[in-house]
């Protein structure tokens, strides 16, 4: 016995009414690979720094958070490492570089504090300067790349951004609990200013244009 259901057409539009993704994107393959290489380099430098700092901070809760966040950024580096060959870069190391000299100097300055009394400086560099820059660069990339051709990058950006937001909040909580005197406020803001100046010179994690150009 035949029913209406048996004879109804299954032909549908390739994009459902709720799917508004579009083809155009701001980055071609080469530019995407360049940015991903910068991301990988910076995520690597960040997880190395966090891992190295674990032994240098006396505050037990901070020590454990740094260990946890160390892996988050290592995982991001791994995801970017795996994305590079998919972007036609068969030697991922070639693009695993800082955006420019200023960015390399930024990492050197950020990782300079080592003494056990410098926890505030260590956290300020990561959670008030670098990670907000990651949030900005990843968000810009996610919102401007092609939603169809570059879906794999968007997927990784979303995973990474979730960690960045969570870690940013953890870091800010640790900082607010550690900064309790005017002198500590001064230390935090001076260190942030110094690092921010280098970061501005670098133009962000992928250099000038990290979050697009001012129009």
């Amino acid at each position: 016995m035949s029913t209406d259901a048996d004879t109804a057409s299954t032909a549908r539009a390739p994009f459902a009414p709720w799917d508004r993704r579009d083809l155009p994107g701001a980055f071609d393959v080469a530019e995407t690979a360049r940015r991903v290489g910068n991301y990988k380099w910076t995520e690597m430098k960040l997880f190395e720094a966090l891992g190295g700092w674990v032994a240098t901070v006396p505050e037990l809760d901070v020590k454990m958070r740094l260990g946890t966040h160390c892996y988050h950024h290592a995982w991001h580096a791994e995801l970017w490492h795996k994305r590079l060959p998919e972007l036609r870069e068969m030697k991922p190391e070639r693009l695993t570089v800082p955006a420019n000299d200023a960015m390399a100097r930024f990492i050197t300055a950020m990782t300079e504090p080592e003494g056990p009394e410098l926890t505030i400086e260590k956290l300020v560099g990561v959670y008030r300067v670098l990670i907000p820059r990651f949030v900005a660069a990843y968000t810009y990339h996610m919102n401007n790349t092609s939603e169809i051709t570059d879906a794999p990058t968007i997927r990784t950006l979303k995973f990474a951004l979730q960690d960045e937001f969570d870690d940013w909040r953890d870091g800010e909580l640790m900082l607010q609990s550690l900064i309790t005197t005017p002198d500590q406020v001064r230390r935090a803001s001076e260190h942030q200013s110094a690092l921010e100046a280098i970061m501005v010179e670098a133009g962000g994690i992928t250099g000038p244009g990290s979050i697009g150009g001012a129009e």
Binding site: K63, M64, R65, G67, Y71, H72, A77, E78, H81
Partner: peptide, 19 residues
């Protein structure tokens, strides 16, 4: 590089063990 990643993963595991 992959060994570095494993060490970072171990750092997370050990952090949980401290907790």
């Amino acid at each position: 590089f992959e060994l570095k990643l494993d060490m970072a993963r171990q750092a997370w595991d050990e952090a949980r063990h401290v907790e």
